[in-house]
């Protein structure tokens, strides 16, 4: 399985050996999304609820005059809702000209990771996660799940 990032001819950021990821946390799990898929990283935002929308859709927010649909990744990955009052950050991604904000618990550093530490999803991985993950990076003491942004945003296709 190839990711978007590998198809992009940008040798400065990504080579066959390296993959650059923005790391984020969802609950206890460390995840990563390819850095080129990320347009913005936002702190806590005012989000307008959208009634009758699927539960994964947290609402809309205003990003410099553009309306961005916020998707709650905890809901998307069937994780329990965050403790109340916890500030949440988001990662903005572009899909077909529309902007989407992926709501996560915390966005941390940008890592350049050696492809040799990359592994396919273990076959026993839970289906929800397996569907949205392109593979796993073995870090020191932690595992990083690479999320497939395109699949995370493919909400309408499922309905």
């Amino acid at each position: 399985m190839t990711t978007n990032i590998l198809e992009r001819p940008d040798p400065a950021l990504t080579t066959e050996e390296n993959q650059v990821l923005v790391t984020l946390t969802l609950g206890e799990q460390l995840c990563g999304v390819p850095v080129l898929a990320v347009r913005d990283v936002l702190g806590e935002q005012t989000i307008t609820r959208i009634p009758l929308a699927p539960p994964e859709i947290a609402g809309s927010l205003n990003l410099r005059g553009r309306i961005v649909t916020a998707i709650d990744l905890r809901q998307r990955l069937r994780l329990p809702p965050p403790p109340p009052g916890q500030p949440r950050m988001s990662v903005v991604a572009d899909q077909g000209g529309e902007l989407y904000a992926l709501l996560v618990d915390q966005v941390s550093e940008v890592l350049s990771l050696d492809a040799s530490t990359f592994e396919r999803n273990p076959p026993t991985l839970e289906k929800t996660w397996a569907a949205f993950s392109t593979g796993i990076f073995r870090l020191d003491g932690r595992l990083l799940v690479v999320l497939d942004v395109a699949k995370l945003l493919a909400l309408s296709g499922e309905e």
Binding site: N62, I67, S156
Partner: peptide, 27 residues
């Protein structure tokens, strides 16, 4: 009037969304 995101098109109750003068998004 700005169109709603494609993933929300099936919610027929809204014809679009917009940003008000105070910066908040409204359906």
């Amino acid at each position: 009037v700005k169109p709603v995101a494609p993933i929300l098109r099936h919610v027929t109750m809204f014809s679009g969304n917009t940003i008000l003068g105070d910066g908040s998004v409204i359906m």
